[in-house]
Amino acid sequence: MTDKASSEAIIRRACPSWARLEGLVVHGWKVLGPIGRGGTAEVYRLQHEKDKSEGALKLLLPDFAKDADCQKLFLREADFLEDFNHQGIPKIFAQTTVLDRLALIMDYVPGDNLMTLLHQGKKLPPLSVLMAACKIISYLHEQNVIHNDIKLANFILSPKGRIHCVDFGSARRLSMSSTFFRRFKGSEKVQGTPSYLAPELIQGKGPSKSSDVWALGILAHYLHAGSAPFQGEDASQTLKMILGNPMPSLKSRCEQVDGSLSNIVDRCLIIDPQLRYGTATELLEILRRYRDGTASHRRPR
Results as ranks from 00 to 15, higher is better:
A5P: 00
S170M: 14
E42F: 07
I156R: 02
L284S: 05
M241Q: 15
Y108V: 07
D79H: 14
S249L: 08
V265S: 06
E285R: 09
P246D: 05
A5F: 07
G217Q: 11
A103E: 08
A220C: 00
E8Y: 01
F74G: 02
M115W: 12
A5S: 11
L223M: 07
Y139W: 13
A198S: 13
S128P: 00
S260F: 09
A94C: 14
D3C: 01
S236P: 00
V109K: 13
Y196C: 05
S175Y: 10
L174Y: 03
I11Y: 00
H141N: 12
E22R: 11
P248R: 02
D100G: 11
P62Y: 12
R299E: 13
G226D: 13
K151P: 02
R301C: 01
V26Q: 02
S138R: 07
K30P: 03
N113E: 04
P125G: 05
N148E: 01
L21R: 02
E200K: 09
L261N: 00
Q191W: 02
H119A: 07
L124Q: 12
A280K: 08
R267K: 15
P248H: 05
T279Y: 05
I105R: 11
R20Y: 06
T193N: 05
Q231F: 05
D107A: 07
H164F: 15
N154G: 10
Q95A: 09
R37H: 05
H164M: 13
N263V: 07
V145Q: 03
K72S: 12
E282F: 04
N144Q: 15
Q120Y: 08
A94V: 13
I150A: 06
L102Q: 15
T116R: 08
Y139D: 12
V257F: 00
W18F: 14
R173Q: 12
S227H: 11
N85A: 14
W18C: 03
N263C: 15
A133S: 14
E82W: 12
P125Y: 06
R162A: 03
D212L: 13
L269P: 01
L130C: 07
D112N: 08
M241L: 15
L283S: 09
K209P: 09
Y44M: 05
P194V: 06
I105Q: 10
T116V: 12
G232T: 10
L81Q: 04
E282K: 10
L59K: 13
Q191N: 08
T97F: 06
K123S: 11
I35Y: 03
H141S: 13
